[in-house]
Design a binder for these strands. Structure first.
Lengths: 213, 213
DNA sequence: GGTTCTCTGTAACGAACGTTCTAACCAGAA
DNA sequence: TTCTGGTTAGAACGTTCGTTACAGAGAACC
């Protein structure tokens, strides 16, 4: 594979330096989950190998199958659940930064843009790539993805409650907020620019304001 | 790989029946590109193998390297360009279905929802999975993805011109329209429901109307 | 000291990966 | 007919894939 024809590909594809190198103070199992989550964020499910995970986590290959007896799918599903919680933390922090819900949208897009830029436009949504590759084909992972999206929508819905928006409009707005953030983050990653996220923040703020009584 | 532990995975992962089986009337090269595009739409770049492509296209493996001497990356980049044009056709058709730009948004989401449902929620945006896996790592494919997104945004921008929206607002609106469609399609695919797209249509229509003078 | 249980180091399995090579095939032109 | 150019069939290359097996390290408990 790594011959003269595909050298640039191999050279760039696997020599990724993880932003947070696996912390040896963490438990072995936890280190595996975090490393898997970070690798799948960048390379997707099919692009991330078990051996690469064990290598970068500093964990023996046999240990992977000790902690996750049914193999890659089980580890990947756990990694998606970890990413769910981690991203929820970022989202919650951004949403509470501003009291006004419309202002909070702009804070969200700013935080996501900062994470993206700081990772040289590599760390977008941690589960999108995995979600697409496994959608409808690997039930355990698919379910973890469904749960994560529902979780994030609920965080947005909570923020919108009690701000003058009719209760009936809130679930739909939460849907569009998460989906637009998702799409804008993808566009920002591909275009290596904060612009799509900045635009999305402004438009989401305007949309939310238009629903306030 | 296909042992008792991962049987469900293998069973569902590669026995996909393509919606449009490779048309033998097409040229060999064209058949390769279309098959690659369809497979990468569902399985992503890393999840799609050259041998699977040649098998499903009914083309000799050696022919792949005859038509695409630099291998998988070249074929994948061409497949992204093909998907660009194909999706642009769908988008153009949807946008011209309604004269009013806000109504056209709803027509767009309806058409995308129909395509999704008819493929049992497997055929979402044809390039998103590939875009994420290769973003910033495989320059040729990355460029094709950037071009495709720009192309689709321009189609939306054209639709918005001359409808009472200030020229300065149009590029930003086109960004958010494409990005929201992208995110909503992902959500619809994962949740196996038209609801996210239906909601996105309504909210995009409202957003656009709010910009009309 | 022994016993038990958890975890790891090492090696190997068959299969699939992307790629390369060469001998043939088969049209149309000479 | 022979030649030629584009296309293919088939086998093989070395590497990586996910997974399995097993012996041994290491601490904890009796």
């Amino acid at each position: 594979m790594c011959n003269e024809r595909s050298n640039q590909y191999c050279g760039e594809m696997n020599d990724t330096t993880l932003p947070a190198q696996a912390d040896p103070a963490l438990g072995t199992r936890e280190r595996l989950v975090r490393t898997t989550s970070r690798l799948m964020q960048r390379q997707g499910y099919e692009g991330t190998g078990i051996k690469q995970i064990s290598r970068e986590a500093g964990v023996a290959l046999s240990s992977v199958y000790h902690f996750f007896p049914s193999g890659k799918q089980e580890l990947a599903a756990e990694a998606v659940r970890h990413a769910d919680l981690e991203f929820a933390g970022i989202l919650r922090e951004a949403l509470t930064a501003e009291a006004d819900p419309a202002e909070a949208m702009i804070a969200c897009t700013r935080i996501l843009a900062t994470y993206l830029r700081d990772s040289d436009w590599l760390d977008g949504c941690p589960i999108t790539a995995t979600a697409l590759e496994t959608s409808g084909r690997v039930p355990d992972i698919h379910q973890a993805v469904v749960d994560a999206f529902a979780h994030w929508r609920e965080l947005v819905a909570e923020k919108l409650r009690g701000t003058g928006i009719a209760e009936d409009d809130i679930p739909d707005l939460a849907h569009t907020v998460i989906n637009t953030l998702e799409g804008a983050e993808l566009a920002a990653q591909v275009s290596r620019s904060e612009q799509p996220l900045e635009i999305a923040g402004r438009h989401l703020a305007r949309l939310i304001d238009s629903y306030r009584g």
